[in-house]
């Protein structure tokens, strides 16, 4: 399978990570293991999946780098993939919805999400016509909530009982976070 040709792939570098649009050949056993791990998938309320590498590659191939991006996070030092972002774009509303999985637990609590997401926000706001970013963590995904707040996103609302738990069927609350292009520019100015 080849890289979907629809949109421009992403290639970015941060101090510690390389971020790039994934290719079907990136569908590794390591990634498949993340999908099978309740500790990784639970906070996202995503069902644990026993995907084969082939199924994973087909999933990656569905990202077109225009309305859906799958962007790998690679450790600069080892070149090993430690996680990925899935970004869904609504071109009419110029909105991008961010989801992230850091599958390698050794990297949890080390600021990966906000370092990588800062580069992606720059890219989507500056070069891809996006004017608002959104994210919607479960209310009890406390590390994700921390990351949004620490990065300057605004809590725009709480969706009560919005989701069914993937493990047990209970109703779960979800937060809605948002960040406009102007707010991000202001936050970047403060960080400099």
């Amino acid at each position: 399978m080849n890289m979907p040709a629809k949109g421009r792939p992403i290639f970015l570098k941060t101090a510690r990570f390389a971020l790039r649009s994934l290719k079907p050949s990136d569908g590794s056993e390591r990634w498949a293991n993340w999908l099978r791990d309740p500790e990784v998938m639970g906070p996202l309320n995503a069902p644990v999946r026993a995907w084969t590498s082939q199924e994973l590659r087909a999933h990656i191939a569905s990202a077109d780098n225009e309305q859906r991006y799958l962007i790998g996070v690679f450790d600069n030092a080892t070149q090993i993939q430690i996680g990925f972002f899935m970004v869904d774009v609504d071109p009419f509303h110029r909105r991008a919805n961010f989801n992230v999985v850091i599958g390698e637990k050794a990297w949890w609590g080390k600021g990966v999400v906000n370092e990588a997401r800062a580069a992606l926000l720059d890219e989507f706001f500056d070069n891809r016509g996006i004017e608002k970013a959104t994210g919607a963590p479960l209310s009890r995904n406390f590390p994700a909530v921390f990351n949004y707040k620490a990065q300057g996103w605004r809590h725009e609302g709480t969706l009560r009982g919005h989701c069914t738990s993937a493990s047990g069927g209970a109703r779960l609350d979800q937060y809605q976070f948002g960040l406009t292009k102007e707010e991000w520019a202001a936050a970047r100015g403060r960080q400099k």
């Binding site: 949890w108 609590g109 080390k110 600021g111 999400v113 209310s139 009890r140 406390f142 590390p143 994700a144 909530v145 921390f146 990351n147 620490a150 809590h155 709480t158 009560r160 609350d173 937060y175």
Partner: peptide, 27 residues
């Protein structure tokens, strides 16, 4: 006070007060 510290903090508060925080409190 990083993302994992925040997780421990919220769970610590819940343990201290003996109940689960609701979404409006945790945020």
């Amino acid at each position: 006070w990083d993302s994992l510290a925040h997780l421990r903090l919220v769970l610590g508060i819940e343990q201290r007060i003996g109940r689960t925080l609701d979404a409006d409190e945790a945020i």
